[in-house]
Design a protein around this nucleic acid. Sequence first.
DNA 1: GGTCAATAGTTGTATATACAAGTTTGCAAA
DNA 2: TTTGCAAACTTGTATATACAACTATTGACC
Lengths: 236, 236
Amino acid sequence: MTQTKTAKFSVIKEFICQKIESGEWQQHSKVPSENELAEQFSVSRMTARRALQELTEQGLLVRTQGAGTFVATFKSQSSILEIRNIADEIHDRGHQYFAKQITLTSVSLDEEVAILLGLKNNEQAYYSQVLHFENNSPIQLEQRYVSPKLVPNYLTQDFTQITPHEYLSNEAPLTEATHEIEAVLANKNVCKLLVISTSTPCLQVKRRTWSSHGVVSLATLTSPGHKYRLGSHLKF
Amino acid sequence: MTQTKTAKFSVIKEFICQKIESGEWQQHSKVPSENELAEQFSVSRMTARRALQELTEQGLLVRTQGAGTFVATFKSQSSILEIRNIADEIHDRGHQYFAKQITLTSVSLDEEVAILLGLKNNEQAYYSQVLHFENNSPIQLEQRYVSPKLVPNYLTQDFTQITPHEYLSNEAPLTEATHEIEAVLANKNVCKLLVISTSTPCLQVKRRTWSSHGVVSLATLTSPGHKYRLGSHLKF
DNA sequence: GGTCAATAGTTGTATATACAAGTTTGCAAA
DNA sequence: TTTGCAAACTTGTATATACAACTATTGACC
């Protein structure tokens, strides 16, 4: 039997976690070495090592070659948040989702957008506006500029059937992304589409995505603050 | 020589990454098995395995015991965002940071907050208001309820010297946290402290943190949208 | 006392091997 | 044809071993 119900490395991991969570092992205190753990638990060094390794990847431990393994500094206020696909989110809530395609055309770029997309001023790019609905109520406006070089068939798509991001993910595998999240007041046209007053604070996510060939697209997602929030739940 | 400049498992990882990024290996397509890679690269199975393992942890591959290893579905719109400590952020920007302690007292809880903190209605809890400044301009108001059972000495601290979260991290090691991010209009008092008009959209982060003994604190961070944004940059 | 080199201890990489456990395939029997 | 089982393949866990690379300590020498 290799599997004693729970794997040996898991037992060691839980042992260490417990010591840290209980406070018995404080921040920066030294953790038993691979050899010590191996002996304590009667396992091979590689098995003890795996426990330490995985906890290090999870951020609970810090290891230094030659020096040893230590309890990590608890991430001060640095936390991780997941930005999800609006369509998935709505489905998970058990609500009805649909998308309305407002705009799908080619536009000539102003300077700011051109720079962000890695194109020249006045060059043409594809532009789409898709409005996402939850239970027939508009919840998010997606405005997106797309590089025509990298995604030549963008304008022939039907974004009521597939979300732009889904389509882009298939066309040009993402290698990188940046996000910026702000609270803003939307302009008149956007407010009209979202059916909100111009004084309604909105959560705005700007996302820029890269494939290995360059910037693929630049998306602005605008949602009314009272209808939409970003949430996360994480365990250390 | 064990280290051929870059480790063997790293060479294999890069080989696989390149195949995926170039599109040669599409989503869901099968990746060579551990044994095949081991033979191709003239390494042991355990070394090939490590490459596959780490790429799986990074989310590029998916493995199923018995079936094989496959290129993962590109995370549709699910991305990761890091919420950082405001003080760290300001320091990293090279700006001057300081904190002003507005309130530090014991309050009796209303129902909503009591539930969230895991306390009974009308029970006492500690409450602090700290205003964070960047270059002498207020940038974030932190309002925080703290469980008196878990952090009895909270009221004796000086939060111009140490941030509440920093202090709490030391006192009660975190095991869990949730966040909710919304765009809101702040109330009059908050607006006064942040020196903004009541129509300024604000980014509001609500953070609830746990230690192994229960909910430690409930924090509301409010920042003017035009002064503060959350940002992230990630590579796949 | 200060400096430097040897040494012991620790993590990092790599291999070869063994068996457990899950999936897929193909073949034989009903 | 369908069912069911066996075999082949694949990933998962675990061990024992070897050497590389780095750190911290110790002790000898100046």
